[in-house]
Design a protein around this nucleic acid. Structure first.
Lengths: 135, 135
DNA sequence: CGGCATCCCAGAAGATACTG
DNA sequence: CAGTATCTTCTGGGATGCCG
C-alpha cells in the first residue's frame, strides 16, 4: 500500500474491526472508538500527549518500543480523525509539534480511567494470571 | 505456537506491547491494561458480558465478525487474567456459560466511558475524517 | 454445543536506507 | 529533525476438520 496522506476512498489505514456496516450508524459505539484508537499505539500516543505537546522524537522516546514508521502512521491516523493536531514551525532543522485537539483531549478522560483502573488492579491481574498458570 | 492452556513460562498468548520490562513494575499502567485487553476482541467481549452472562454461541452472535477460534482464544486470555469466569454445566450437550468476574465488572466502567465518549463524538469523528480526506 | 489442532495468508509492524 | 520508501519478517486471525 502506498501511504497516501489523503487516504483515497476510505482506505482503512488502521482498522481493527473487520469491515462490517460499511457506514451505517446502527452499530455499538464501542466499535466506533475501537476502529479509531483500538490499534496497538494510538492510546499510548494520546496518553503521552495529554500533559503537553511534544515533538516527533520526544514523543518517540516516551513510547518505548514504537518504531519511527509506526509513530508516523499512528499520528497520521489520529490527525485524520481530528484527535491530534500537527503544527510545523518553519525553521531549520524543521520542528514539528503534536498536540491533542479538543476532541483528543476529551478522549484523554476515558483513557485515564483505563489507566487508573490498571494501576488499581495491577496486583490482582498478576495474581490471577499467576494462579491460572499454576493451576 | 502450540496453544497451551497453561501457557508455560509466561507465553504472551495475546500481547500487544512488545516485550519490554520483563516484569518490572515501573511502567505506565496503561501498558498493563493494553497488554491484557488491548487486542481486537477483548473489550467487545467484556462489553457484551456486562449485562448478563452468556453462553459461547450466544456471545458469538453478539460480536459480529468474530470467529469461533478468536472467541475461544480471547475468552481464555480473559479467563487467565481473572476478568471472565467460565462455568460448565454438566449436561448433554454441554452448556458453558461465561460471565464477568468482579474484577471484570470493575473494568466495565472505564469501557463504558469509552463507549459513551464514542456515542457523544461519533459525528465529530466522522466530520473530521471527511474533512481530512477532502482537504 | 463448545471446543482444539492444523494449515495458511493478509496485513501489521520492524529494519534499514535515503531525503528536504 | 522529521519524515518517506522499500524490503522483510512476524503474527493475528480465517477456514476447515475432528472430538467429547
Amino acid at each position: 500500500m502506498t501511504i497516501s496522506t489523503k487516504a483515497e476512498e476510505g482506505a482503512p489505514l488502521l482498522s481493527t474491526t473487520p469491515g462490517f456496516e460499511p457506514d451505517g450508524d446502527g452499530g455499538c459505539p464501542i466499535r466506533e472508538v475501537l476502529d479509531r484508537v483500538g490499534d496497538t499505539w494510538s492510546i499510548l500516543v494520546i496518553f503521552n500527549l495529554q500533559e503537553h505537546p511534544l515533538r516527533f522524537n520526544a514523543l518517540r522516546r516516551c513510547i518505548e518500543g514504537i518504531s519511527q514508521r509506526m509513530l508516523t502512521v499512528t499520528l497520521r491516523s489520529l490527525e485524520r480523525d481530528g484527535l491530534v493536531a500537527r503544527r510545523v514551525k518553519p525553521v531549520s532543522p524543521p520542528e514539528v509539534e503534536y498536540s491533542l485537539t479538543e476532541l483528543g483531549a476529551s478522549l484523554a478522560g476515558p483513557i485515564d480511567a483505563l489507566g487508573s483502573w490498571g494501576a488499581r488492579h495491577r496486583a490482582a491481574l498478576r495474581a490471577a494470571r499467576a494462579a491460572f498458570d499454576a493451576g
